[in-house]
Nucleic acid binder design. Structure first.
Length: 1083
RNA sequence: GGGCGAUUAGCUCAGCGGCUAGAGCGCCUCGCUUACACCGAGGAUGUCGUGGGUUCAAAUCCCUCAUCGCCCACCA
C-alpha cells in the first residue's frame, strides 16, 4: 500500500485500488456460523432492463448502506446478489416465432438451441448486472450469487409447485387472459398498461326475431301499434364492433322498461346470421332515459342493450357463465379474424354466414370492415367519438386482447395465502418519522369485528422484539398492500415462453378409444397402470396424480424433483417410440410398460413455463437453502431484516413473497419493508428506454464516481413518492447525466481534501516539521508520508486518549460534541430509513462544522507547541469517526482515507468523548458510539461563530481588502470573554482581524463601528465609509423595528400570555428587550 | 371510478403546530489566505397553489377548489 495521498482526488483510481484490496481479502462473505446478530436484506433479483436505471442504483445504494452499517455494528450481515431471467428472452423477438398458427408451440422449434442461445445472453447480462453492483461498491457475498434459473432455485420452484399443487392451491382453468397478440403470450394483470386511446362508440342495430320451435321470424308489423313498444331492432353500443362476430346473446337490464316485451325473443346477428337470445342481466348499465345514473359515463353512452361476447370480454365471459352461453372465439392468436379457433367447431352455431370477407383481417381492419358493412346495410345508428383507456402490453405496447386460453392458476385467494399475507401486516407505528405508520391490522380483510382476539399475536410496542409481522416504511404503503390482498384474484402463473421454469406437470389422457370410438381403457384402468408404474420406478413420494374433469378426461401428473420428472419423461419417450414403431426400447423399463404403451401415447409435458414472479416470490427461501431441511442459512437469516424496493413492486412481489414464506415456513420473509421514491426525469416522467430519458448508473460512476453517485442517491431518498432528476445529454458522449450528481462529487472532493489536510498536518507534526511550513507540497508528498510513518514509533508528543481529554480547547470540545450529536442523528435517521437525513447530517457535520470551522480553528492550535499534539489527536479522532459514519454511503473514499490515517495515526480516540477502536480496514471498523456532549462549550462556540460572521459581514459591507486585518474589541460577559480569549488566534484567522481587548468593561474605541453578535458588542475599527454605514444602520433599524412590532403584538395578545408555554413567553420577552436595546444603541 | 402523493427561492428538494421559513445548484460582489476554485467569504431572491375553518399561534392540522404526477380497478 502506498503512503501517498495524491493531491487531486481521482475517484476512478481510488475505486480501483480499494476494490482490489477488498477483493483480495475476501471481505464480503458471511457464514451462518459467524457470530453476531443476523442481519439480511432481501435483494430484488434484477433483470437487465431494470439494472440499467437509476432506480435500481438507488435501491442498491440503500441496501449497501444498511448492510455496511450492520456489519460495522458487528452483526452477521449477508447480501445475496441475484439476477432474474425476466427480460432476457423478452428483449428479443425470438419468442414471436415460438407459437404456430394454432396457438400451440411449434414442433419444429429447437428448444435446446434456443436455450443455449439465451444462456449466452444471460451470461452477458449477468456480467452487466453484477458488474454494476461491483462498480458501485456493493458489498455482496459474491460467491453466493444466485440466478433465478439455476439449479438451487429450480429445486425450490419444483418443491413449491408440488406442495401448492398437493394442497389444492394450483389448478388449471380455461379463462380469458390478457393476450398479447404481438408476442403471443398471456400477460398478468399487472403487466398490462393502460393507455388513453381515441376511438368511437358505435351504435349497431340488431334485428329482433321471435322464435317458434326451430323457426325464427321477424315480429309482426301490427305489434308496432300505439302504446306497445315492439321494436324491429335493438341497438347495442360498442367500442369494438369486430367482436360482434362472436356475440352469443344480447343482454338488457331486467329493470329496463323494454325488457318485458323482449323477454324470450332473439336477434339475428348481422353478417353472421346467427340467432342469439336476448337475456336479462343486471350487470347491464341502463341508459339515462331508463334511469341510469347521469354521472356514470357508461350510462351516458349506453343504449341499454349490451352485446355479449364471452370469448372476447372478461365481463361478457362472466355473463356467459351465468347464462350458460356458448363461447365463440373469432380470432387467431395473432389477433386476426379466424374461424379456425372455435368459431366453426360449434354445432349449429358454426356458420360464418356472410362473414367470409372478414377472415384473415387484422383486428383493426376488421373493425373498419364491420362498421362499413353496418353502414351500408343501414344498421349503423351512430358513431360517437370517445376517448378511453385501453390495456396495452408492457412488452410490445400493442393493445391486449382478452383471449380464451388454458392457463395454470395459483389460488392466492385462499385463506392460506392472501389471508396469511393480510395477517402478517403490522399494526404498530413504524417510527415517529414514518407518518401514519403501519396502517392495517384493525380493518384487515374480512377479519372478525373489533374485540375478537386475533388468532395471531399483534406486534408489541417499541423496545420489545417485533412479533412475526411486516412493517412498511413509510407506513402509508401498508394500505396499498392491504387493499391489493383484499381484492386479489387468482394468479395466472403460466406463460407461453420458452425461457423459464417449466411447469412440472404432465398430462395423460385417461380414456382410450379404438378407431371406431369405442372405449377400450377407462380411467380406472389407466390410473391403475400408472400407479403401478410409479411404484416400480420408486417415485411415489415425488409424484401426484389427479384426474381432471374436462372435455377430454385426463390425469395431471405433477412431479416434485428433477429425477421424478426425468422418469416420467423417459416413460413418455419410451412409449412414444414404441408407438412410433421404433420398438428398440420397447418394454425394457418396466413390467407395466408393455401395457402402458397402448394408452400412453398422449403423455405430454405441459409446454408452458412459470411466471417469473413465481420464482421471485421464493427468493427469501431459495437463496437461503430451502427446501433443504434445517438449512443453516435459512434458519439464520429468514425472516430477513428488511426488504427495500419500489412501490410498483408491492403487489407483484412483496405480497407474494409474504404469502409463500408464510405458507412454506409459517413466518414472514422480512420484518421491514422500505419503499423508496421513484426517480423521474426533470419533467416528472418515469424514466424509460422508449423515452430515452434514462440514466445509466455506470455513466455516472464514470463521470462523477461511485461514492458521489451513492451519496447523491441517498440524499435524494426522502419520504416522498417521486423525486425528479433533470436529465442532460452530454453532447460529447451522447450519454445522459444529471447535474444533481454534482453534490455528491463536490462532497467527495471535500472529504478527500479535508482528510488530506488533517493527515498532512499530523504527518508534519510527527515528522518534527513545523506545522507552519508547507506540509504537503506537490512532488514531496511521498517523502512526508514515509517520514511520518517512520516517526510514529517514537512520537512522544502524540498524547494518549486520556491526556488529550484533559487539555481540550473550546473548539475541540465543540467539534467533539457536534460529532456526538451527528452520530445520534445518523443512527436515528437510519433506524427510520431516512437516508436523506443521514446523508445531510454527515454532510453538514463534515463540511460546515469540521472543515469550515474546526479545521480553520485548529490551524493556529497546530502552531502552538502546547496544543499541537492534542489538536492533532482531536483532528485524527474526528476524521476517524467521520469516515466510519460516512463509510456506508461512500465506501471507497473513506476506505482509502482510512488507510492513510492509519499510517500517520494508528491510535486514535479521546477519552470520554469518542472511542476509536483500531481497525486495519474501514469496512471492518466499529460503528461509532456516542460519547459525552459538551453543551456549555457548544453554546459559547456558537456565540463566537456569530461574532466571526458579524466581523466578516462588516468587512464585506465596507469592502475591506480580504488580506487586510482589522482591529476588533469585544464587550462581553465573563464566560464569553474567557472563551474568546482561549480561541483568540483562531478567531483572528477566521475573521481576519486582530483582537485588541475583550471583557465586561471594554469601551468602544474612537471611530469604531459597533455591531451586536452572540450577545456581545463587537467594535471594529478603521471602517470608513459613511454611505455604507448609513445604509447598514438603516437596514438594521428597519429589521429591528419590524421585529419589535411583531414581538410586541405577540405579547399584547392576552390569549398568548395565558395559553402559550411559559418558556416561549419568556423567550419572546427576552427577544423584545434585546431588540429594543440594539435599536436604542443605533440611535 | 378508487387510492396515494405533490404544489415552499429561477431549478431540485428539506421543514410538517411556536426561533427572523432552510439546503444544494444557479445568480451578484470579493478573494488562487500555507486541504480543497469540484474552493473560501459575503449577498440578493419566497403573500409556503387557491379560498375557507380550527388555534393564543398554521407552510405545518381540517375542509373546498385548482393544477401536476403515480398506483390500482374498469371500460359498452
Amino acid at each position: 500500500m502506498s503512503t501517498e495521498m495524491p493531491k487531486a482526488y481521482d475517484p476512478t483510481a481510488v475505486q480501483a485500488e480499494v476494490a482490489a484490496v477488498w477483493e483480495n481479502e475476501k471481505l464480503f462473505h458471511a457464514e451462518p456460523t459467524d457470530p453476531g446478530e443476523p442481519y439480511s436484506v432481501v435483494i430484488p433479483p434484477p433483470n437487465v432492463t431494470a439494472a440499467l436505471h437509476l432506480g435500481h442504483a438507488l435501491n442498491n445504494t440503500i441496501q449497501d448502506v444498511l448492510i455496511r452499517k450492520a456489519r460495522m455494528e458487528g452483526k452477521n450481515a449477508v447480501w445475496l446478489p441475484g439476477t432474474d431471467h425476466a427480460g432476457i428472452a423478452t428483449q428479443t423477438v425470438v419468442e414471436k416465432r415460438v407459437l404456430n398458427e394454432e396457438g400451440r408451440r411449434r414442433t419444429d422449434f429447437r428448444r435446446d438451441e434456443f436455450v443455449k442461445k439465451i444462456q449466452a445472453w444471460k451470461d452477458e447480462y449477468e456480467q452487466v448486472i453484477l458488474g454494476q453492483l461491483k462498480a458501485m461498491g456493493c458489498s455482496c457475498d459474491w460467491d453466493r450469487t444466485a440466478f433465478t434459473m439455476d439449479a438451487p432455485r429450480a429445486k425450490a420452484v419444483r418443491e413449491a409447485f408440488f406442495q401448492l399443487f398437493k394442497a389444492g392451491l394450483i389448478y388449471r382453468g380455461k379463462r380469458l387472459v390478457n393476450w398479447d397478440p404481438a408476442t403471443q403470450t398471456a400477460l398478468a394483470d399487472d403487466e398490462v398498461e393502460m393507455e388513453e386511446v381515441d376511438g368511437f362508440f358505435y351504435y349497431l342495430k340488431y334485428p329482433v326475431y321471435e322464435r317458434d320451435g326451430d323457426n325464427f321470424f321477424p315480429p309482426q308489423e301490427e305489434h308496432k301499434g300505439m302504446g306497445t313498444w315492439a321494436p324491429l331492432y335493438v341497438t347495442v353500443a360498442t367500442t369494438r364492433p369486430e367482436t360482434m362476430l362472436g356475440d352469443t346473446a344480447v343482454a338488457v337490464n331486467p329493470t329496463d322498461s323494454r325488457a318485458a316485451s323482449l323477454r324470450g325473443k332473439y336477434v339475428k346477428l348481422p353478417i353472421v346470421n346467427r340467432y342469439i337470445p336476448i337475456i336479462e342481466d343486471d350487470y347491464v348499465v341502463k341508459s339515462i332515459d331508463e334511469g341510469g345514473d347521469p354521472a356514470d359515463v357508461k350510462a351516458q353512452f349506453a343504449s341499454g342493450f349490451l352485446k355479449v361476447t364471452p370469448a372476447h370480454d372478461p365481463n361478457d365471459y362472466e355473463i356467459g357463465q351465468r347464462h350458460s352461453l356458448p363461447v365463440i372465439n373469432v380470432m387467431a392468436p395473432d389477433g386476426s379474424i379466424s374461424n379456425q379457433h372455435g368459431w366453426s367447431q360449434l354445432d349449429g352455431l358454426g356458420g360464418v354466414g356472410e362473414a367470409g370477407f372478414l377472415l384473415g383481417l387484422s383486428r383493426e381492419a376488421a373493425r373498419e370492415a364491420v362498421v362499413e358493412w353496418f353502414r351500408r346495410h343501414g344498421l349503423l345508428e351512430a358513431a360517437v367519438p370517445y376517448r378511453h383507456s385501453v390495456g396495452h402490453s408492457y412488452r410490445s405496447h400493442v393493445p391486449i386482447e382478452p383471449y380464451l386460453s388454458d392457463q395454470w392458476y395459483c389460488r392466492v385467494t385462499d385463506e392460506r395465502l392472501a389471508g396469511a399475507a393480510l395477517r402478517a401486516l403490522s399494526t404498530s407505528s413504524p417510527s415517529p418519522l414514518a407518518g401514519e405508520g403501519g396502517v392495517g391490522g384493525s380493518s384487515v380483510g374480512k377479519s372478525p369485528e373489533a374485540g375478537n382476539p386475533s388468532p395471531h399475536p399483534l406486534p408489541q410496542g417499541e423496545g420489545e422484539k417485533k412479533a412475526d409481522t411486516v412493517t412498511f416504511y413509510p407506513g402509508r404503503y401498508a394500505k396499498t398492500y392491504q387493499t391489493w390482498n383484499e381484492n386479489i384474484r387468482d394468479w395466472c402463473i403460466s406463460r407461453q415462453l420458452w425461457w423459464g421454469h417449466r411447469i412440472p406437470v404432465w398430462t395423460l389422457q385417461s380414456d382410450v378409444r379404438d378407431a371406431t370410438g369405442e372405449l377400450i381403457w377407462n380411467e380406472a384402468d389407466v390410473g391403475g397402470l400408472l400407479s403401478t408404474w410409479i411404484k416400480e420406478v420408486g417415485i411415489e413420494k415425488d409424484v401426484i396424480v389427479i384426474s381432471t374433469s374436462g372435455a377430454v378426461p385426463a390425469f395431471n401428473i405433477c412431479t416434485r424433483t428433477a429425477q421424478a420428472d426425468a422418469a416420467v419423461g423417459e416413460l413418455a419417450r419410451v412409449t412414444y417410440m414404441a408407438n412410433s414403431e421404433d420398438d428398440e426400447h420397447y418394454g425394457r423399463k418396466s413390467s407395466v410398460v408393455p401395457h402402458l404403451v397402448q394408452v400412453i401415447s398422449s403423455l405430454e409435458q405441459d409446454p408452458d413455463v412459470l411466471d417469473t414472479w413465481f420464482s421471485s416470490a421464493l427468493w427469501p427461501l431459495s437463496t437461503l437453502g430451502w427446501p433443504a431441511a434445517n438449512a443453516a442459512p435459512l434458519t439464520k437469516w429468514n425472516p430477513t431484516t428488511v426488504l427495500t424496493t419500489a412501490r410498483e413492486i408491492i403487489t407483484l412481489w412483496v405480497s407474494r413473497m409474504v404469502m409463500f414464506n408464510q405458507f412454506f415456513l409459517g413466518q414472514v420473509p422480512f420484518r421491514d419493508v422500505f419503499i423508496h421514491a421513484m426517480i423521474q426525469d426533470g419533467d416528472g416522467r418515469k424514466m424509460s428506454k422508449s423515452l430515452g430519458n434514462g440514466v445509466d448508473p455506470l455513466d455516472i460512476i464514470h463521470s462523477h464516481g461511485a461514492d458521489a453517485m451513492r451519496f447523491t442517491l441517498a440524499s435524494m431518498c426522502t419520504q416522498t413518492q417521486d423525486v425528479r432528476m433533470p436529465v442532460e445529454r452530454d453532447p460529447a458522449t451522447g450519454r445522459n447525466t444529471s447535474p444533481k450528481f454534482d453534490i455528491g462529487r463536490n462532497f467527495a472532493n471535500k472529504v478527500w481534501n479535508g482528510a488530506r489536510f488533517v493527515i498532512g498536518q499530523i504527518a508534519a507534526l510527527q515528522n518534527g516539521e513545523s506545522a507552519s511550513g508547507r506540509v504537503v507540497a506537490d512532488g514531496g508528498v511521498a517523502d512526508v508520508g514515509v517520514a511520518a510513518s517512520a516517526a510514529m514509533s517514537s512520537a512522544p508528543d502524540f498524547p494518549s486518549a486520556n491526556q488529550t481529554a484533559k487539555v481540550l480547547t473550546l473548539a475541540d470540545l465543540w467539534i467533539l460534541s457536534r460529532l456526538n450529536r451527528t452520530i445520534d442523528e445518523a443512527n436515528d435517521a437510519l433506524a427510520g430509513y431516512r437516508f436523506d437525513q443521514y446523508a445531510k447530517a454527515c454532510y453538514d457535520f463534515f463540511w460546515r462544522d469540521f472543515c469550515d470551522w474546526y479545521v480553520e480553528a485548529a490551524k493556529p492550535q497546530m502552531k502552538d507547541p502546547t496544543r499541537q499534539a492534542s489538536t492533532a489527536r482531536v483532528l485524527a479522532s474526528v476524521l476517524d469517526a467521520s469516515m466510519r459514519l460516512l463509510h456506508p454511503v461512500m465506501p471507497f473514499v473513506t476506505e482509502k482515507i482510512w488507510w492513510q490515517l492509519n499510517e500517520v495515526a494508528p491510535e486514535r480516540g479521546v477519552m470520554g468523548r469518542i472511542n476509536c477502536p483500531p481497525s486495519q480496514r474501514c469496512i471492518k471498523a466499529q460503528w461509532p458510539r456516542r460519547g459525552e456532549l459538551a453543551e456549555a462549550a457548544e453554546q459559547i462556540f456558537e456565540k463566537i461563530q456569530e461574532i466571526v460572521v458579524a466581523i466578516r459581514t462588516l468587512r464585506s459591507d465596507y469592502k475591506i481588502d480580504a488580506r487586510k486585518s482589522v482591529a476588533v474589541s469585544i464587550k462581553s460577559g465573563e464566560e464569553a470573554a474567557h472563551g474568546i480569549l482561549s480561541l483568540k488566534a483562531s478567531i483572528e484567522l477566521l475573521a481576519v482581524c486582530t483582537i485588541r481587548d475583550v471583557g465586561e468593561h471594554v469601551a468602544s474605541p474612537d471611530n469604531a463601528t459597533a455591531v451586536q453578535a452572540g450577545g456581545c458588542e463587537v467594535y471594529v475599527e478603521g471602517l470608513v465609509d459613511p454611505a455604507a454605514e448609513a445604509q447598514r444602520v438603516a437596514k438594521r433599524k428597519d429589521e429591528l423595528t419590524k421585529a419589535v412590532a411583531a414581538l410586541k403584538g405577540r405579547l399584547n395578545n392576552a390569549g398568548y400570555l395565558a395559553k402559550a408555554p411559559p418558556h416561549l413567553v419568556k423567550q419572546t420577552q427576552d427577544q423584545l428587550t434585546e431588540a429594543e436595546a440594539e435599536l436604542a444603541s443605533l440611535g
